[in-house]
């Protein structure tokens, strides 16, 4: 029964989102604001992990809001608004990282603010390990384990086959485990309760 209620709630939320999208496409600015506010925090979290910098993440969010407003009429299926706008964010983050790579050859990158909070050593270790992953792996980890997208949805966001998403996820998890094992933070035989979070 609980599962059914959650399913119905999910459907209702999706309907509300679709209605807001249709209103925004008709030119209703207030509808667009309400629509974007629903997904804003999720987009910001994604950007924070990928860009490792909160101010860059905020700038990216502002740019994504502008781009989404400009192109909302191109969205043919309103129910996929969240995946559509997440794709815009991922593309924006990719562009920022490319730009940074050009600059990093000349500039010192130590001024970058790393978005790791004061947490347990394991959490800090996980975040540092995630930050060491290259962009394609980091993107799938964030979308899967922070934002909870399915493999199919991630494939839609990243515009690649589902098989590619699966292999990237497996490869990323393997790298993370190896990284954490080297740091002594992960051991396969330990139970979950043994880790302090």
């Amino acid at each position: 029964m609980k599962k059914n209620n959650l399913f119905i709630k999910g459907e209702k939320q999706s309907e509300d989102l679709s209605q807001l999208v249709l209103a925004a496409q008709a030119g209703n600015k207030e509808a667009f604001v309400r629509l974007f506010e629903k997904v804003k925090d999720s987009l910001y979290r994604t950007a924070c992990v990928i860009l490792e910098n909160e101010s860059d993440a905020y700038d990216a969010l502002q740019d994504v809001a502008l781009k989404a407003y400009k192109n909302i009429k191109q969205l043919r299926e309103p129910q996929f608004f969240k995946t559509w706008v997440t794709r815009i964010m991922i593309n924006k983050c990719c562009a920022i990282l490319k730009e940074r790579r050009k600059v990093s050859l000349l500039a010192d990158m130590s001024g970058l603010q790393i978005s790791i909070r004061e947490n347990s050593p394991f959490s800090v270790g996980v975040m540092e390990a995630v930050n060491r992953l290259s962009f394609p792996y980091r993107a799938v980890i964030v979308l899967r384990y922070l934002e909870g997208y399915s493999q199919k949805e991630i494939a839609r966001i990243l515009k690649c086959p589902v098989g590619t998403v699966k292999s990237r996820l497996n490869a990323a998890l393997k790298k993370l485990k190896a990284d954490l094992e080297v740091q002594g933070l992960w051991h396969p035989s330990k139970e979950e309760e043994a880790y302090e979070l």
Binding site: R45, C48, V49, S115, I116, R117, N119, F122, S123, V126, M127, V130, I141, V142, Y145, L146, L173, L176, W186, E192, Y195, L197
Partner: peptide
């Protein structure tokens, strides 16, 4: 489970 909790705890 640990990975999810760590990412969420941080963000």
């Amino acid at each position: 489970s640990l990975l999810k909790k760590s990412l969420n705890a941080n963000h």
